[in-house]
Amino acid sequence: MFEARLTEGSLLKKIIEAIKDLVQEANVDCSEEGLTMQAMDASHVSLCSLNMRHGGFDHYRCDRSISLGLNLANLGKILKCAGNDDVVTLKAEDEPDTLTLMFESPNQERISDFELKLMDIETEHLGIPNEEYKCTISMPSGEFQRIVRDLAVIGETCIITCTKEGVKFSVSGDLGNGNVTVRQSSAADGDEKDQVKIQMEEPVTLNFALRYLGFFTKATPLGSTVKLHMSPDVPIVVEYPIDGIGSISYFLAPKIDE
């Protein structure tokens, strides 16, 4: 028996919105520790990894580890039937064919339940090395979203350069080129969540497809901060912490000069 209850049901809506344009089908693995999901996009350029700890749920029970093969677009359709303030409960048997979703309005006046058919999905599970990154940038997620959106109008590839002074996002295209530099905040600058912080061992420059960075920014509503982890010649990690429960991390392979 698997049962997981989230008072803030809208969180689940936001998580699926953040993944479903990149990944069509995925296995969500449920264990005593919580929910995890790892999936590549259809072109195998990027990888999305979701982690939700059991302690972040209001109620969590998982007697036996199970894998839920989900069509994320269809799950998104069902979650659209939940109100933004609804409590959402997920339920499945030990050898499930379906996932039951129950939505309760805050005053308990409306209770609905839906069953989503599960799928057998064969996926390749990749081992992600525990890497110490040369640069870690923490910045407001809305700022990152704006930069990616603005630069995507000009070209396809973004050059991200991280130095001690700041992070430079550069793009060039048929109409011209552009750069946006965000500088490290001084300690006196406003709220913690509005700050740009850079931890750097050595400067890093890498090229990335803006199209994929754009997919990742669908996770912006999940939190005020995004973290970018970069080292030379390895995928960037775009990590969105989800307050109190876990995170979504996206890994994107760099573009390499031929």
Binding site: M40, S43, H44, V45, S46, L47, E124, H125, L126, G127, I128, P129, T157, N207, A209, V234, P235, F251, L252, A253, P254, K255, I256, D257, E258
Partner: peptide, 14 residues
């Protein structure tokens, strides 16, 4: 001209 690499080039199958 830069070319896109694949994620499986960096992370091995478990």
């Amino acid at each position: 001209m830069s070319s896109q690499t694949s994620i499986s080039r960096y992370f091995r199958s478990k």
